[in-house]
Amino acid sequence: MTPSSWSDLDRPPLNTASLRRGLLRPGALWTALDVVPATGSTNSDLAARAGRAAAPAEGAVLVAEEQTAGRGRLDRQWSAPARSGLFFSVLLKPGAPGARGTGVPAERWGWLPLLTGVAVAAGLAKAGGVDTALKWPNDLLVTVGGEERKAGGILAERAGDGVVVGVGVNVSLRADELPVPTAGSLALANAVSTDRDTLLREVLRSVERWYGQWRDAAGDPVSSGLMEAYAAGCSTLGRRVRAQLPGGGELLGEAVALDADGRLVIATDAGKREPVGAGDIVHLRAVDGG
């Protein structure tokens, strides 16, 4: 008898009732949490809801036990076995009035994927006991066998008057299940826990803390502490990189800083400092002496 993708006893389903009890409370960011057995993309589904007349409130969370058409940046596909990871999207509305009486200006919304990376890394470290590095702009890296491997990613998309931020993290994937040899998972990185309920709860609490702090600062990445935290956890900074730019161009140099808009500043081989706001970053080698 061929085993069902849902019969793996090492991968129990998420406990929706327990997650709701732990996360949905008066005054909290999270206002609704739904878990579906499978969907194409939680980002697409939540963005579609956000575009309707009866759009969900800020703080809606949509989680899938399995994604069949998950998307990363540049419409790359993201797939994994059922119940092997965290696949979820959240609806945020940073333009709504906050603690200072005004919302976050739209020009600062580009920090949301970086904020989510900081929050997810912190949540995974606390609940899973695994170090997660950030590769600019939206990759989550773990160390497997002494090598950096991509274990997750983040995708932010405008939707109605808000932003849908999607997160995918490989939790229990085994070596023979990896989509590519350069991928990784929390299990392969020797996480002390791969309990998805615990991981998801802590990750969402971490997102809530960082988002609240950033909104209270009107989206200022410096006074909110976001820029410092991202720089501290970013494995791209201080590395020699190749930036593959939209349109086919590329830059070679050292990633030296983030600017006020969250762009990666590269000190190029031509002696210039160029900010990069979009594109693929390839880590080449450590800078000499670094």
Rank of each mutant, 00 (worst) to 15 (best):
R209Q: 05
A232G: 09
V207C: 12
G219Q: 09
G212N: 07
E208T: 03
E177C: 03
A229D: 13
N190K: 15
S206L: 07
L200Q: 12
G225E: 06
G233S: 04
Q244I: 02
S193L: 10
Q213I: 00
Q244T: 11
P179E: 08
V222D: 00
P181F: 09
Q244G: 13
P246E: 06
V203F: 03
Y211R: 14
R240K: 13
L178Q: 05
D216R: 15
S223Q: 00
R196H: 14
P246L: 13
G249Q: 02
E208H: 09
R201I: 06
V241W: 13
L178Y: 12
V203Y: 04
N190T: 08
L200I: 04
A229S: 15
L226Q: 05
L178H: 11
R209H: 05
L200H: 12
L252P: 02
R205L: 13
M227H: 12
D197W: 14
A187Y: 08
R174W: 01
L245D: 07
L237V: 04
L178C: 09
D197H: 14
L200Y: 08
S206C: 04
Y211T: 01
D176R: 08
A231L: 08
M227Q: 15
L199S: 02
S224K: 12
L200D: 00
L226D: 03
E228H: 09
W214M: 08
V207Q: 06
Y230L: 00
M227V: 08
D195I: 01
R201W: 00
P181G: 04
C234V: 01
L245A: 13
A189G: 05
Q213V: 02
L226Y: 01
A187R: 15
V222E: 02
P179H: 15
R201C: 11
V222Q: 10
S185D: 06
D195R: 14
G238A: 08
A231M: 03
E208M: 00
E208I: 01
S206N: 01
D197F: 15
S193H: 12
E250D: 02
A232W: 02
V207S: 05
S206V: 02
A231S: 13
R209D: 09
V203M: 13
E177N: 10
T198A: 15
L251K: 14
R205F: 07
G248K: 04
L204M: 07
A231Y: 09
A187W: 12
D195N: 10
S206E: 03
Y211G: 05
S235K: 11
M227D: 13
A175T: 10
S206R: 09
R196Y: 10
R215G: 13
G249H: 01
R201F: 04
Q213D: 12
V180Q: 10
V203H: 11
G248H: 06
E250C: 08
R201E: 09
S193N: 06
C234Q: 05
R174Q: 12
